[in-house]
Nucleic acid binder design. Sequence first.
DNA 1: CATCCGTGGCG
DNA 2: TCGCCAAGGAT
Length: 333
Amino acid sequence: MAATVSEHLLDWYDAHARDLPWRARPGQPAPDPYRVWLSEVMLQQTTVAAVKPYFESFTQRWPSVDALASAPEEDVMAAWAGLGYYSRARNLVKCARTVSALGGFPDTEAELRKLPGLGDYTAAAVAAIAFGRRAVVVDANVERVVARLFAIGEPLPGARKTIRSRAEEITPGTRAGDFAQAMMDLGATICTARDPKCLRCPLSSACEARRNGDPARLPVKAPKKTRPVRQGRAYWVERDGAVWLVRREGEGMLGGMRALPDDGWSARGDGVAEHSGELLGMVRHGFTHFEIELAIHAVDIPLGDGEWWPLDRLDEAGLPTLFAKAARLALAK
DNA sequence: CATCCGTGGCG
DNA sequence: TCGCCAAGGAT
């Protein structure tokens, strides 16, 4: 019966696969491992719609892993600005340089897993999609589909072991890459979190949750904590058509990204001393585990270690969204 | 195992 | 309007 699930799903995929820029077109040879890897990293916790324009610009600017490996890190960080989870961009550069030095991507799941930024999911996905390996690819889509297919009521994250074992059982020996992408397409378009479209699902007849009557209930998740609201200040220092920008250090919040000087609200210990100046306005922004209310103050003297950035090229600075909002506010005054 | 780490869209 | 959610990884 396990074979039946993958066969139904692959048939459905052959007819309904989404046409995505990182996928090989029908008739083309296997997809370029560089493009598979790049897309998989960009897609970590990020929607297809958000990734598309970044994937296009990255592959145009850096067509190969060697090209990316040769790029200055700050150029890559700036190009990543707005996509979020900036440790991905830091690891992207590290990984590209490692792979370039190796002469290419390793072609096994175990070797891929050793590269920076590739965890269990991405190593399995690249091994299966780019190299045709049989690998068990488990992301949030697969977790949802499998939890419903087998009516696994145990809440996440405790259910992960059970889900992985069920996913292993239905993963076919060949076309594991297509199978993985089919599961993700199914999860993204049919077996969605809020409103599963069971009437169009190729697996509906095998689905235990549907038989039980309430597939949308699964998978069960632990309740989330409410996000606290932090307050902070950022400083707008403008002189001769330029603004003073710093580059945030380290691996923490927005690490490696250009930014306005701030008072250390993100608790990284490298904020500048509190200054007062005209209050230009407030910016509110939500992060994963807290919200920030940022007061934007105009100040006359440059603060901290930074550089003057021409205002007419500010969009090229690569400011993360919080500071892009702050800049928009300041420039509108 | 829990926490940290962005962002934008959707119901 | 707002909580939830997305092709997770590192520590």
